[in-house]
Design a protein around this nucleic acid. Structure first.
Length: 296
DNA sequence: ACCCATGTTCTTTG
DNA sequence: TCAAAGAACATGGG
Protein backbone atom coordinates (compact mmCIF):
# COMPACT_ATOMS: atom_id res chain seq x y z
CA UNK A 1 0.00 0.00 0.00
CA UNK A 2 2.81 2.31 -0.72
CA UNK A 3 1.62 5.89 -0.70
CA UNK A 4 3.64 8.60 0.98
CA UNK A 5 3.22 7.42 4.60
CA UNK A 6 4.14 3.83 3.79
CA UNK A 7 7.16 4.90 1.82
CA UNK A 8 8.25 7.18 4.68
CA UNK A 9 7.93 4.20 7.01
CA UNK A 10 9.99 2.06 4.63
CA UNK A 11 12.59 4.81 4.41
CA UNK A 12 13.02 4.90 8.17
CA UNK A 13 13.39 1.14 8.21
CA UNK A 14 16.06 1.25 5.52
CA UNK A 15 17.77 4.14 7.26
CA UNK A 16 18.20 2.10 10.43
CA UNK A 17 19.14 -1.07 8.63
CA UNK A 18 21.48 0.09 5.94
CA UNK A 19 22.98 3.53 6.42
CA UNK A 20 26.72 3.29 6.98
CA UNK A 21 26.83 -0.18 5.49
CA UNK A 22 28.69 -1.23 2.40
CA UNK A 23 26.92 -3.20 -0.32
CA UNK A 24 28.75 -6.45 -1.01
CA UNK A 25 26.34 -7.88 -3.59
CA UNK A 26 23.13 -7.30 -5.48
CA UNK A 27 20.97 -10.38 -5.55
CA UNK A 28 18.42 -10.44 -8.35
CA UNK A 29 15.69 -13.02 -7.92
CA UNK A 30 13.43 -11.45 -10.57
CA UNK A 31 14.91 -8.94 -12.98
CA UNK A 32 11.46 -7.71 -13.93
CA UNK A 33 11.54 -5.01 -11.27
CA UNK A 34 14.87 -3.61 -12.46
CA UNK A 35 14.59 -0.46 -14.57
CA UNK A 36 18.39 -0.31 -14.87
CA UNK A 37 20.12 -3.26 -16.56
CA UNK A 38 21.28 -5.83 -13.97
CA UNK A 39 24.95 -5.70 -14.94
CA UNK A 40 25.06 -1.96 -14.82
CA UNK A 41 23.33 -1.98 -11.45
CA UNK A 42 25.71 -4.58 -10.05
CA UNK A 43 28.83 -2.72 -11.02
CA UNK A 44 27.39 0.55 -9.79
CA UNK A 45 26.48 -0.86 -6.38
CA UNK A 46 29.23 -3.31 -5.48
CA UNK A 47 31.52 -1.84 -2.86
CA UNK A 48 29.47 1.33 -2.46
CA UNK A 49 28.61 2.58 0.98
CA UNK A 50 25.09 3.83 1.74
CA UNK A 51 25.44 7.34 3.10
CA UNK A 52 21.81 8.17 3.80
CA UNK A 53 18.22 7.95 2.67
CA UNK A 54 15.76 10.38 1.14
CA UNK A 55 12.13 10.32 0.12
CA UNK A 56 10.18 12.28 -2.46
CA UNK A 57 6.52 11.47 -2.82
CA UNK A 58 6.26 7.71 -3.17
CA UNK A 59 9.92 7.28 -4.07
CA UNK A 60 12.66 6.22 -1.68
CA UNK A 61 16.33 6.93 -2.36
CA UNK A 62 19.50 5.31 -1.05
CA UNK A 63 22.36 7.79 -1.33
CA UNK A 64 25.60 6.17 -2.41
CA UNK A 65 29.11 7.34 -1.57
CA UNK A 66 29.77 8.30 -5.19
CA UNK A 67 26.86 10.76 -5.29
CA UNK A 68 24.49 8.53 -7.22
CA UNK A 69 21.21 7.31 -5.75
CA UNK A 70 19.41 3.99 -5.88
CA UNK A 71 15.73 4.75 -6.43
CA UNK A 72 13.03 2.47 -5.07
CA UNK A 73 9.46 2.81 -6.26
CA UNK A 74 7.05 0.36 -4.73
CA UNK A 75 4.24 0.25 -7.27
CA UNK A 76 1.01 -1.05 -5.80
CA UNK A 77 2.27 -3.86 -3.61
CA UNK A 78 5.92 -3.18 -2.81
CA UNK A 79 7.43 -3.58 0.65
CA UNK A 80 10.80 -3.88 2.33
CA UNK A 81 12.20 -6.49 4.66
CA UNK A 82 15.41 -7.89 6.08
CA UNK A 83 16.75 -11.41 6.42
CA UNK A 84 20.01 -13.22 6.97
CA UNK A 85 19.96 -16.51 5.13
CA UNK A 86 18.59 -17.21 1.68
CA UNK A 87 15.92 -19.70 2.83
CA UNK A 88 14.50 -16.98 5.09
CA UNK A 89 13.83 -14.54 2.26
CA UNK A 90 10.32 -13.15 2.61
CA UNK A 91 7.82 -14.44 0.07
CA UNK A 92 7.93 -12.34 -3.13
CA UNK A 93 11.38 -10.94 -2.50
CA UNK A 94 12.50 -9.81 -5.96
CA UNK A 95 15.84 -8.17 -5.22
CA UNK A 96 18.12 -8.08 -2.20
CA UNK A 97 21.10 -5.95 -1.21
CA UNK A 98 23.75 -7.77 0.79
CA UNK A 99 25.13 -5.60 3.58
CA UNK A 100 28.67 -6.09 4.74
CA UNK A 101 28.78 -5.28 8.44
CA UNK A 102 25.52 -6.77 9.64
CA UNK A 103 25.53 -9.66 7.20
CA UNK A 104 21.85 -8.94 6.62
CA UNK A 105 20.09 -8.62 3.29
CA UNK A 106 17.72 -5.78 2.54
CA UNK A 107 14.78 -7.22 0.61
CA UNK A 108 12.69 -5.48 -2.03
CA UNK A 109 9.43 -7.39 -1.85
CA UNK A 110 6.77 -6.99 -4.52
CA UNK A 111 4.14 -9.63 -5.33
CA UNK A 112 2.67 -7.77 -8.30
CA UNK A 113 5.91 -6.50 -9.72
CA UNK A 114 4.73 -2.99 -10.54
CA UNK A 115 7.58 -1.65 -8.41
CA UNK A 116 10.89 -0.52 -9.93
CA UNK A 117 14.51 -0.20 -8.86
CA UNK A 118 16.82 2.06 -10.80
CA UNK A 119 19.96 4.11 -10.59
CA UNK A 120 19.85 7.91 -10.91
CA UNK A 121 22.47 10.63 -10.78
CA UNK A 122 20.67 12.52 -8.04
CA UNK A 123 17.29 13.01 -6.43
CA UNK A 124 16.89 16.22 -8.40
CA UNK A 125 17.72 14.54 -11.71
CA UNK A 126 15.18 11.82 -11.02
CA UNK A 127 12.58 14.36 -9.97
CA UNK A 128 13.06 16.23 -13.21
CA UNK A 129 13.07 13.10 -15.37
CA UNK A 130 9.83 11.89 -13.80
CA UNK A 131 8.33 15.38 -13.65
CA UNK A 132 7.55 15.06 -9.98
CA UNK A 133 6.07 18.06 -8.20
CA UNK A 134 6.96 19.10 -4.66
CA UNK A 135 6.45 16.51 -1.95
CA UNK A 136 2.95 16.59 -0.49
CA UNK A 137 4.38 17.32 2.95
CA UNK A 138 6.26 20.36 1.64
CA UNK A 139 3.78 21.99 -0.72
CA UNK A 140 2.21 25.18 0.62
CA UNK A 141 -1.43 26.20 0.37
CA UNK A 142 -0.43 29.00 -1.99
CA UNK A 143 1.44 26.63 -4.30
CA UNK A 144 -1.48 24.25 -4.30
CA UNK A 145 -3.86 27.03 -5.22
CA UNK A 146 -1.52 28.32 -7.90
CA UNK A 147 -1.27 24.87 -9.48
CA UNK A 148 -4.95 23.91 -9.25
CA UNK A 149 -6.83 27.19 -9.20
CA UNK A 150 -7.25 27.47 -12.95
CA UNK A 151 -7.66 23.82 -13.82
CA UNK A 152 -11.00 22.69 -15.21
CA UNK A 153 -10.33 19.13 -14.18
CA UNK A 154 -11.89 17.02 -11.48
CA UNK A 155 -10.17 17.58 -8.18
CA UNK A 156 -9.46 13.94 -7.42
CA UNK A 157 -7.42 13.20 -10.55
CA UNK A 158 -5.57 16.47 -9.99
CA UNK A 159 -4.55 15.44 -6.49
CA UNK A 160 -3.44 12.04 -7.74
CA UNK A 161 -1.24 13.70 -10.37
CA UNK A 162 2.33 13.32 -9.11
CA UNK A 163 3.51 16.27 -11.18
CA UNK A 164 1.32 18.62 -9.16
CA UNK A 165 2.32 17.28 -5.79
CA UNK A 166 4.02 13.97 -5.10
CA UNK A 167 2.91 11.35 -2.64
CA UNK A 168 -0.88 11.32 -2.61
CA UNK A 169 -2.54 8.05 -3.63
CA UNK A 170 -6.06 6.81 -3.95
CA UNK A 171 -7.13 6.32 -0.36
CA UNK A 172 -5.29 9.39 0.88
CA UNK A 173 -7.02 11.64 -1.60
CA UNK A 174 -10.38 10.31 -0.48
CA UNK A 175 -9.43 10.87 3.14
CA UNK A 176 -8.11 14.37 2.43
CA UNK A 177 -11.26 15.38 0.56
CA UNK A 178 -13.45 13.99 3.32
CA UNK A 179 -11.49 15.85 5.99
CA UNK A 180 -11.63 19.03 3.90
CA UNK A 181 -15.33 18.47 3.16
CA UNK A 182 -14.87 18.85 -0.56
CA UNK A 183 -16.43 16.68 -3.27
CA UNK A 184 -13.94 14.80 -5.49
CA UNK A 185 -15.70 15.95 -8.66
CA UNK A 186 -15.38 19.64 -7.96
CA UNK A 187 -13.22 21.34 -10.55
CA UNK A 188 -9.94 22.87 -9.48
CA UNK A 189 -11.07 26.27 -10.71
CA UNK A 190 -14.18 26.21 -8.52
CA UNK A 191 -12.43 26.10 -5.15
CA UNK A 192 -12.49 29.18 -2.94
CA UNK A 193 -9.45 30.49 -1.07
CA UNK A 194 -10.91 29.05 2.07
CA UNK A 195 -11.31 25.65 0.47
CA UNK A 196 -7.70 25.64 -0.65
CA UNK A 197 -6.72 26.34 2.94
CA UNK A 198 -8.90 23.45 4.10
CA UNK A 199 -7.42 21.20 1.44
CA UNK A 200 -3.90 22.03 2.50
CA UNK A 201 -4.67 21.50 6.18
CA UNK A 202 -6.31 18.18 5.40
CA UNK A 203 -3.27 16.98 3.47
CA UNK A 204 -1.07 17.85 6.44
CA UNK A 205 -3.44 16.20 8.90
CA UNK A 206 -3.87 12.97 6.97
CA UNK A 207 -0.18 12.55 6.17
CA UNK A 208 0.98 13.40 9.69
CA UNK A 209 -1.54 11.00 11.19
CA UNK A 210 -0.67 8.19 8.81
CA UNK A 211 3.07 8.59 9.34
CA UNK A 212 2.63 8.70 13.10
CA UNK A 213 0.75 5.41 13.00
CA UNK A 214 3.31 4.03 10.56
CA UNK A 215 0.50 3.66 8.06
CA UNK A 216 -1.40 1.10 10.13
CA UNK A 217 -4.87 2.07 9.03
CA UNK A 218 -6.70 0.39 11.82
CA UNK A 219 -4.98 2.64 14.33
CA UNK A 220 -6.25 5.79 12.65
CA UNK A 221 -8.71 7.99 14.55
CA UNK A 222 -12.39 7.09 14.37
CA UNK A 223 -12.93 10.41 12.62
CA UNK A 224 -11.24 9.02 9.50
CA UNK A 225 -13.16 7.86 6.46
CA UNK A 226 -10.71 5.06 5.80
CA UNK A 227 -12.58 2.74 8.12
CA UNK A 228 -15.40 2.69 5.58
CA UNK A 229 -13.27 1.14 2.87
CA UNK A 230 -14.08 -2.43 2.06
CA UNK A 231 -10.69 -3.81 2.91
CA UNK A 232 -11.30 -2.77 6.47
CA UNK A 233 -14.79 -4.23 6.81
CA UNK A 234 -13.71 -7.44 5.15
CA UNK A 235 -11.19 -7.92 7.92
CA UNK A 236 -13.95 -7.50 10.49
CA UNK A 237 -17.06 -8.94 8.89
CA UNK A 238 -20.42 -7.72 9.97
CA UNK A 239 -19.24 -4.37 11.21
CA UNK A 240 -21.90 -2.35 9.51
CA UNK A 241 -21.04 0.74 11.53
CA UNK A 242 -17.95 1.11 9.38
CA UNK A 243 -20.15 1.91 6.44
CA UNK A 244 -21.43 5.13 7.95
CA UNK A 245 -19.98 8.61 8.08
CA UNK A 246 -17.94 9.26 11.24
CA UNK A 247 -19.73 12.61 11.57
CA UNK A 248 -23.22 11.46 10.58
CA UNK A 249 -23.96 8.03 12.03
CA UNK A 250 -27.06 7.72 9.86
CA UNK A 251 -25.51 8.75 6.57
CA UNK A 252 -24.08 5.94 4.49
CA UNK A 253 -20.73 6.32 2.83
CA UNK A 254 -21.10 6.09 -0.95
CA UNK A 255 -18.75 4.25 -3.24
CA UNK A 256 -18.42 5.00 -6.92
CA UNK A 257 -15.74 5.68 -9.51
CA UNK A 258 -14.00 8.96 -10.30
CA UNK A 259 -11.38 8.98 -13.01
CA UNK A 260 -11.55 5.21 -13.04
CA UNK A 261 -10.61 4.94 -9.38
CA UNK A 262 -12.74 3.61 -6.54
CA UNK A 263 -13.88 6.64 -4.55
CA UNK A 264 -15.61 6.91 -1.18
CA UNK A 265 -17.45 10.00 0.02
CA UNK A 266 -19.95 11.17 2.59
CA UNK A 267 -22.76 12.75 0.56
CA UNK A 268 -23.63 15.05 3.44
CA UNK A 269 -20.12 16.28 4.28
CA UNK A 270 -19.07 16.57 0.65
CA UNK A 271 -21.91 18.17 -1.31
CA UNK A 272 -21.95 17.43 -5.03
CA UNK A 273 -20.73 20.24 -7.27
CA UNK A 274 -23.49 22.58 -8.35
CA UNK A 275 -24.20 24.83 -11.31
CA UNK A 276 -21.30 27.15 -10.55
CA UNK A 277 -18.52 24.75 -11.34
CA UNK A 278 -19.10 21.23 -12.58
CA UNK A 279 -22.28 22.51 -14.08
CA UNK A 280 -19.89 23.01 -16.95
CA UNK A 281 -19.18 19.29 -16.97
CA UNK A 282 -22.82 18.24 -16.93
CA UNK A 283 -23.59 20.79 -19.61
CA UNK A 284 -20.87 19.22 -21.71
CA UNK A 285 -22.44 15.82 -21.20
CA UNK A 286 -25.82 17.17 -22.26
CA UNK A 287 -24.31 18.72 -25.37
CA UNK A 288 -22.59 15.48 -26.19
CA UNK A 289 -25.84 13.61 -25.82
CA UNK A 290 -27.77 16.14 -27.86
CA UNK A 291 -25.07 16.06 -30.51
CA UNK A 292 -25.16 12.30 -30.65
CA UNK A 293 -28.93 12.40 -31.15
CA UNK A 294 -28.66 15.10 -33.80
CA UNK A 295 -26.14 12.98 -35.68
CA UNK A 296 -28.66 10.17 -35.94
C1' DA B 1 -14.28 -18.62 -11.82
C1' DC B 2 -14.74 -13.98 -11.56
C1' DC B 3 -13.78 -9.55 -9.99
C1' DC B 4 -11.14 -6.24 -7.56
C1' DA B 5 -6.89 -3.86 -6.21
C1' DT B 6 -2.79 0.96 -2.98
C1' DG B 7 0.46 3.06 -9.10
C1' DT B 8 2.27 4.66 -13.51
C1' DT B 9 2.25 5.30 -18.31
C1' DC B 10 0.60 5.08 -22.82
C1' DT B 11 -3.10 5.27 -26.25
C1' DT B 12 -7.40 6.71 -27.84
C1' DT B 13 -11.10 9.81 -28.19
C1' DG B 14 -13.36 14.09 -27.84
C1' DT C 1 -2.96 21.52 -26.19
C1' DC C 2 -6.04 19.88 -23.01
C1' DA C 3 -9.04 16.71 -20.75
C1' DA C 4 -11.21 12.24 -19.93
C1' DA C 5 -11.58 7.44 -20.46
C1' DG C 6 -9.59 3.00 -21.10
C1' DA C 7 -6.05 -0.20 -21.38
C1' DA C 8 -1.93 -2.29 -20.16
C1' DC C 9 1.27 -4.00 -16.88
C1' DA C 10 1.51 -8.91 -13.24
C1' DT C 11 -0.39 -11.14 -9.77
C1' DG C 12 -2.68 -12.38 -5.34
C1' DG C 13 -6.64 -12.56 -2.69
C1' DG C 14 -11.63 -12.45 -1.60
Amino acid sequence: MPELPEVETYRRFIDELAVGQTITALEVLDAHVLATPPDQLRSALAGRTIKGTKRLGKNCFLELDNGQVLVLHFGMTGDVGAYRDAPDAPRFTRVALHLEDSGLRLAFIDPRKFGRIRLADSVAAYQQAKKLGPDALDITAAELQQKLGRRKTLLKPLLLDQSITAGLGNWIVDEVLFQAKIHPERLGVSLSDKEFQALHSAIQLVLATAIKQEANYRDFPASFLIHAREWDTSATPGTEAHKFCPRHPKVKIEKYYVGGRATYICPKCQPAPDALDAGAASKQRKHARAGAKADK
